[in-house]
Amino acid sequence: MRRPPDFARWWTLSPVTVWMIVLFLLPLILVLAVSFMSRNIFGGIEYTFSLDNYIRYFDPLYLKILWVSCQLAFLTTVFCLLIGYPFAYIIARSPAKYRNVLLLFVIVPFWTNSLIRTYAWIILLRTEGVINTILLHIGIIDKPLTMLYNDTAVLIGLVYTMLPFMILPLYASIEKLDKALLEAASDLGARPRQTFWKVTLPLTAPGIMAGTLLVFIPALGLFFIPDLMGGSKAILIGNLIKNQFLTARDWPFGSAISIILMALTLLFIAVYVKISKDKAGKDLM
């Protein structure tokens, strides 16, 4: 039996469709189109097709920026995981009545603009900042430490900003973990450490994967943290894009880098999907 076309479905979905087309698809097409054009001498766009922007990107200078960005994003992810896992574990294993409060503490910083939170870090870390003043005062150090405007500062800022994105998916997967499985492991003779490596970690791997993705990808593109905390030396791919649009006024080149970054991101997601699908597939076998 043929069913009449399902207009109702289209009709009810139309606001979403319009939203996606106007605010997502069109800008994306615009960026993609601009990336194949070139900059005219007034900083505008010359409407001619060219691949120059993409070719230009494969300059070692730009490739190095991408490499350094990936490194930093990777380090950010590692530190978020190392800090976030115990954090999420403690929350998930605390009594139910405290759990929501503890989760709230993780989320509350989100309610403040992240730019303001970054400035707060600057106040803490700079040469005459809170930490240096206290350390000098109690005599642990005799000259101020340089904690700001270097890669470490950028890393601190990124880890701080991205940490909740790691904690939340980890919390979700640890909380779901059946406590009976941990008891079973212990019952069978596994010490707490063995239980962690053989049971807890493999079963919370989906949370680790999700958290890794949620931290790594934004960490790759965040530009204001390197801008504010890394000083003039730290140019990452996010800053490069921002500079092309705002400072150099080379929109086509900025668009091309954006597309490259996006392609890279999609690649990471594809790898993630592949790995998690393989895992799911193996589980079904």
Binding site: A180, L181, E183, A184, A185, V199, P202, L203
Partner: peptide, 9 residues
């Protein structure tokens, strides 16, 4: 165990 608690992975 009551619900077996087999390791699913």
């Amino acid at each position: 165990f009551q619900n077996y608690a087999l390791f699913p992975h």
